[in-house]
Design a protein around this nucleic acid. Structure first.
Lengths: 239, 239
DNA sequence: TCTGAAACTTAGACTAGTCTAATCTTTGCC
DNA sequence: GGCAAAGATTAGACTAGTCTAAGTTTCAGA
């Protein structure tokens, strides 16, 4: 008589939200996201991903082709875009209204995006004048879950010759953050991909304008989220 | 060689934070908090509380006297006050900066208090001018974990004759929220305790100024957080 | 002082999420 | 075309947190 039925549409857990976001970023051009890449991005072991993938495809958020990878369903994509909208609005709000700098804002938004309500996000968006782009020119998905394309690519996916601006460092592991900082790999830095080894080997990049080279293993490269910089380098395209 | 050691001071989980807050509120006058009261306040079953109590006393956050109840240690109290500071600053920020009304603010703060960083709270506090009292006159703990006394009491603890202002409804269960609203028991309402049955029986109250009576069972009364109203009724004491 | 009801704890099961170790697929290369 | 290595999955264990059912302890009142 009372609610013993399984909840038809349970709220997504924090973990599920993180997986959906990672899969969205990794399968951006309509392809499949690989288990090991998801694992590297979320800093969990590959079997953890296999387990979660099973649960997510049972609930209809992703499609899984064993040994191939996963793709978001329409429902999963909607959920992922919702998280991305939250993340970008939070980043914008924290920098513009609370004096954060772009260095510290990512980790904070990463936590808050799981806790805020839709109402709060829309109030923040309103305060900011319902922005359509974040300060780096990336589009913010609408509340209805639509987004203009032109997304972040992880350094591990970028082609040789690409000119990139480092935007986000997708880890909170202090040792790694320290390492990246030592290498001069902090958000805002410009770089060019000069070489990529096969077999998921390291990517070689050159910092711009200094030209200093860096070699970044695939696992670390997956944590470095970049925007492809158009040929003319300043400002953002005025859509 | 690498970090296999148990983390000496692991971060508190969301659940632990909620237990500490509940215990703080229930043992306010230096007494013990009872298992069943914690259970009612957090809307979990009593054995869940016993289990958590065991973990919390092993980590030194509370003292447990079996069959008696629990008390916060200094460390536990510090953690609880930190959460209460977060909660009150969030409520203040959401109402003053983002146009929330006092009805909707509690649930939002309840989620956010687990996700915000210390830095964000201090930035919000700074924006608000480092307030010492919330809009109802309750003191906000300092960042160092000090608080002026005069706290919220649950309706279940208030003495007969007490004049109270309902401040928070400590549940998110829609059915209960609807019930309370139907009874006119929403934050801000004034009431007097007219009777209390023994054996953990119901509390009878009268709404002020209408005088309408209400009978509230102990389990529900534990969810109604009130401020004791001084004889002169308006404004808050200007400490 | 005894006793029964209320309150508390223990026992045991379940879920979500994580891990390591072992096994199975796929694929690039000779 | 076969094979080794990379990558993916399965197997099995663990933790935190929850629950219900069953047993203990406490204490108010007769």
């Amino acid at each position: 008589m009372h609610a013993t039925l399984r909840d038809a549409n349970p709220p997504l857990t924090r973990s599920v939200e993180d997986y959906l976001k990672a899969i969205y970023h990794l399968s951006n051009q309509g392809g499949f996201a690989a288990t090991s890449d998801i694992a590297a991005m979320l800093e969990v072991a590959p079997p953890s991903v296999s387990g979660m993938v099973k649960r997510l495809s049972e609930t209809g958020l992703i499609e899984h082709v064993p040994y191939r990878g996963v793709q978001l369903t329409a429902q999963g994509r909607r959920a992922a875009l919702k998280m991305i909208r939250r993340h970008r609005i939070l980043e914008l709000y924290l920098t513009q209204q609370l004096g954060y700098d772009w260095g510290g804002v990512h980790a904070e938004a990463e936590q808050l995006e799981h806790a805020v309500s839709d109402e709060l996000i829309e109030r923040m968006a309103g305060t900011l004048g319902n922005p359509q782009y974040d300060p780096h020119g990336d589009p913010i998905p609408t509340a209805a879950g639509e987004i203009e394309e032109a997304e972040l690519v992880s350094l591990a996916e970028a082609g040789v010759g690409a000119k990139l601006e480092l935007r986000q460092v997708g880890t909170q592991d202090p040792a790694r953050l320290r390492y990246f900082a030592e290498q001069g790999l902090t958000p805002g830095v410009l770089l060019t991909v000069t070489d990529r080894q096969p077999f998921n080997g390291p990517t070689t990049i050159a910092l711009v304008p200094s030209g200093d080279p860096r070699v970044v293993g695939r696992e670390l490269a997956l944590l470095l989220w970049c925007r492809e910089v158009p040929v003319e380098q300043h400002g953002h395209a005025s859509h």
